[in-house]
């Protein structure tokens, strides 16, 4: 196994990094934790003449609980996210997901920015962020833009991130009171495994009625996807096992899974249905600050 030679850059400031990317004109790859990039490069899946490490840029760290949003720096690791009080308070389902990613060491190295930018369909973090309506901030040398995460993913390992852009923040709007987010993962062993299917659910319940419902699925379509039909079905109805089951059925019909090593398309549809039901149930509990144990 061999890591091809490349030019390594480690800018200490964001402006230097974006400048470098603009000069290198698409011949560079950005690396943060390196858990995806180096593994892919070693296995010959990717090559790059230049590697720009953003790991040493202090402003890309930090989890800030601001007035209306939670702002997560792209260098934050799954272990830090899983243990963050702000994350646990604002979007517990993201902590669920961060805590079941890969193995402990990888969770120390990997970053949320990398997990989103790699756009692996089975990534654990995207579904929980999708249901919370997260946006990503993309910074180039000549400007900053924000893109909703739902629009960010374009295909397997493909995103809207420009060659001269760096993902500089994940911004999660605060959910109203009475909201809950949960993530359910199905894996073939209980650690260090990719999701066969991952499902995140978010509910906001007001006056006994579902005001907002979001369901997102990983590993069952070319990208992590929101299932809008679930919102249509659930919103305006009181929560309950029956409507959740109906929503879960719809989700399993709407996804577009493939068959691979980890499972057939048909099995994935079954899993989407089961996990969607469980995620909705747990999210509903969290709306009331109650923890329904995960199966």
């Amino acid at each position: 196994m061999r890591l091809e030679d490349f030019q390594f850059h480690a800018p200490g400031k964001l402006a230097e990094a974006t400048h470098l990317l603009s000069v290198l004109e698409g011949t560079a790859r950005v690396v943060a934790g390196g858990t995806d990039l180096l593994a892919d490069m070693k296995q010959g899946r990717l090559g790059a003449a230049h590697v720009v490490s953003i790991a040493g840029i202090p402003e890309l760290r930090g989890i800030e609980d601001r007035e209306n949003v939670l702002r997560i720096g792209p260098l934050e690791t799954p272990n830090r996210i899983a243990a963050s009080d702000a994350v646990l308070r604002r979007i517990r389902g993201l902590a669920d997901a961060a805590g079941v990613m890969a193995g402990y060491q990888v969770r120390n190295l990997a970053t949320i920015g990398g997990n989103l930018a790699s756009a692996v369909p089975s990534g654990d973090l995207p579904p929980a962020l999708l249901v919370a309506g997260a946006v990503v901030e993309l910074t180039a040398h000549d400007g900053i833009r924000t893109v909703s995460l739902a629009d960010f993913f374009l295909g397997p390992r493909k995103t809207g991130l420009g060659p001269d852009e760096i993902l500089t923040a994940v911004i999660v709007p605060h959910l109203p009171a009475g909201s809950g987010v949960a993530y359910e993962k199905f894996q073939l062993r209980d650690a260090s495994a990719l999701a066969v299917v991952g499902v995140a659910a978010r509910l906001t319940i007001a006056d006994g009625v579902i005001a907002t419902a979001r369901l997102a699925v990983g590993a069952a379509a070319p990208t992590p996807v929101l299932i809008p039909e679930v919102a249509e079905l659930l919103e305006g109805k009181p929560p309950g096992a029956e409507v959740f089951a109906a929503a879960a059925r719809i989700a399993s019909e709407e996804v577009k899974p493939i068959s691979d090593l980890r499972g057939s398309a048909a099995y994935r549809r079954d899993l989407v249905r089961v996990l969607a039901g469980r995620a909705l149930t747990r999210a509903e509990g969290r709306c009331r600050n109650e923890e329904v144990p995960s199966c």
């Binding site: 390594f8 480690a10 690396v31 934790g33 390196g34 858990t35 180096l38 593994a39 590697v51 490490s53 790991a55 040493g56 060491q105 990888v106 120390n108 190295l109």
Partner: peptide, 10 residues
Amino acid sequence: VNSCLVLAAS
């Protein structure tokens, strides 16, 4: 951390 995934240059 997995030392196989850490670039020495960093």
